[in-house]
């Protein structure tokens, strides 16, 4: 929040931003345990983020599940492994599609609104006013928002997984003449419980990142209302980049650490 010292090197800019982002993340973690917890704000934000993401998430996940089912189905057919269609497409939906759909919606719909809200409060000096009263905006406003996006992300991930799986089942069984029995048995042959956990863990972390990045950009808009617009824009783009990167890392780690079931 304070002005940078004079003549900052252009190379240091991004590094400094990253450092501040991590500082805010650490501050959020610390402030999350500080009393009094802003329960009302949390509920309001939870409700808000949920209300703007549930419907689009459900609508997106049906075609997504279908596309994956169709694609995987056609591939397995060519390889002569139709019997594994169900398991493969469900795994793809639960582990990859679902957390990413959640990430896109949480940052695109929830994060952008959070960023715009905090940004306009910042330029109206409302955040300064809070600080003057000895109240930390991070504890008061940012923590409930980040926790709300995390919780919504986890729940939404469950929803998208279920809807996506149902969509995949529907398309595989009805359109590709798969048999329900094969679909289900391949599922239990390939999938295991940790697949679900990693999916939810991803969603949780994505929710955290989306919330923190949105808050960070919202708390630091550059100069006036135009700055808030830019900040919202950037927050969505930055979140996407971060989430896809983190997803890659987490997927890699998971595949290394947890042994696949169908050997």
């Amino acid at each position: 929040m304070s002005a940078p010292p004079r003549t900052p090197s252009p190379l240091l800019g991004p590094l400094r931003q990253t450092g501040r982002l991590f500082t805010l993340a650490a501050e959020v973690c610390r402030a999350a345990f500080r009393r009094p917890f802003q329960f009302r704000e949390f509920i309001e934000q939870f409700w808000f983020v949920a209300s703007v993401t549930i419907l689009p998430a459900a609508l997106v996940s049906i075609p997504f599940g279908a596309v994956i089912a169709l694609q995987v189905g056609s591939l397995t057919q060519q390889l002569g492994a139709q019997s594994f269609t169900g398991g493969a497409s469900v795994l793809a939906v639960i582990q990859q599609a679902s957390p990413l759909i959640v990430a896109l919606l949480i940052s695109g719909a929830g994060g952008s609104a959070i960023c715009a809200d905090l940004g306009s409060r910042k330029i109206r000096e409302e955040l300064d006013a809070l600080e003057v009263m000895g109240i930390s905006p991070v504890q008061r406003l940012v923590v409930p928002r980040v926790l709300a996006t995390m919780l919504v992300a986890v729940l939404l991930n469950g929803l998208v997984s279920v809807v996506g799986t149902l969509g995949g089942y529907f398309f595989n069984v009805i359109m590709q003449d798969g048999t329900p029995g094969a679909y289900l048995s391949s599922f239990s042959a390939l999938a295991q419980l940790p697949d679900l956990w990693i999916s939810e863990l991803k969603a949780l972390i994505f929710g955290f990142i989306a919330g923190v990045v949105a808050a960070y950009r919202g708390l630091n808009p550059r100069g006036g209302p135009k700055g808030v617009g830019d900040a919202v824009n950037q927050s969505v783009v930055i979140t996407f980049l971060l989430l896809f990167f983190v997803n890659t890392v987490m997927t890699g780690l998971y595949l290394q650490i947890v042994p696949p079931k169908g050997g």
């Binding site: 306009s120 409060r121 109206r124 000096e125 409302e126 300064d128 006013a129 600080e131 003057v132 009263m133 000895g134 930390s136």
Partner: peptide
């Protein structure tokens, strides 16, 4: 933060909380 509780600052533009009524604004502290 502790010392700030000794302060009252009137901002140039008021810096009221836009989502609260005047009553809630004044009652906030």
């Amino acid at each position: 933060y502790e010392t700030r509780k000794l302060f009252g600052l009137m901002f140039q533009d008021g810096a009221l909380f836009g989502s609260m009524t005047l009553f809630d604004n004044v009652a906030f502290p």
